[in-house]
Design a protein around this nucleic acid. Sequence first.
DNA 1: GTCTATAAAGCGATAGAC
DNA 2: GTCTATCGCTTTATAGAC
Lengths: 201, 201
Amino acid sequence: MAKVSFREQVLQAREDAIVDAVNRLLAEKGFDLMTVDEVVADVGIAKASLYKHFSSKEELAAAAMVRVLERALAELARLREQPGSALDKLKAVARWTMQVQLAGEMPSLPAQNSSLRAALTGHKLYMDRLLTLSDELGEWIGAAQADGSLRPDLPPEIVLYTLFARACDPVLALLKAGGQHSDAQIIEMLLTTCFGGLAGS
Amino acid sequence: MAKVSFREQVLQAREDAIVDAVNRLLAEKGFDLMTVDEVVADVGIAKASLYKHFSSKEELAAAAMVRVLERALAELARLREQPGSALDKLKAVARWTMQVQLAGEMPSLPAQNSSLRAALTGHKLYMDRLLTLSDELGEWIGAAQADGSLRPDLPPEIVLYTLFARACDPVLALLKAGGQHSDAQIIEMLLTTCFGGLAGS
DNA sequence: GTCTATAAAGCGATAGAC
DNA sequence: GTCTATCGCTTTATAGAC
């Protein structure tokens, strides 16, 4: 059992507060428009202090991503204990993902930023969590394709990417901005289009 | 008939070259990472010269968006002359959209950038083309819902936004980066998931 | 480790000569 | 209208006192 001093707890709490702020700002403005000055203003510390905890802006983004991936893994563990088919669980994951996004808690990173990509692919903890999540979802995808509840003719990676893409689906924000539907209605409709498609009978 | 001097033709050609470069850079790096310095280096002119044609970086992005919207409107006009149901035409539009993206010709603008949003919503030409495109697609959506080939229970706006979202679907780039499938295969599979959904029989 | 102060670089946009 | 040169500002990141 690790001995954790009071001092270390305080530091940990401060890092949590930093990641909290980063997560919210990433969800609100995205990586490119988020500035480190905003983060420190939000937390109420000096910039130099932040750089004692995290060595770069990219590290901040990676920390936020690790935390949301671990939240997702916790959700998967919870679903694994629940009754229901593999397809049910995949739908539940998609629903959870969209709930997080609508709650303004989903960090959004631009896929085009190469320095950020390099930092993420070189980040051990981030890559580990991402691969673990992909593997666990891959098992459910395989099971659902085996029992025919998910199209067996689709490569599993397409299913996986399509589910991941729900986390940053711009349709969610557009519908929310329209103000015509409740969050729950938006999510259920997008679940319909995601799994059932746009086409009719 | 307007009298167009040779001088004006040269200026128009230069503006076209600028928008060409902007369009490619927007597709490659996105608005935030694109710099005006890169644009002028690409075109081979001085920065001050560019600002004689376009008053801001946001104006550049708007010009690129206007051009791609007009390309889309031309594609719609072409499809209108072709045989096929409303659903067929909507699928063809989605296919065209994804082809443009895979060709690296689809400018990508961040929805979170508020100064850019303000510039676009205040840009008459951009708004006109966007609304025209939405209206024309809306007619096909209504027709397809009326004949049951598109789910009639979905609000038309969701269908519209879902089609628009194919233009910036990150799944396309992920699959292309994977290198396992040809562009045509990627597009056909995503058409399947978009209209038919992930679920099986 | 935290702060103030500042370095170093990149950015959008403009002045002024031609 | 085009150029060179530069302004003015923002940003990431760090130095050095405490």
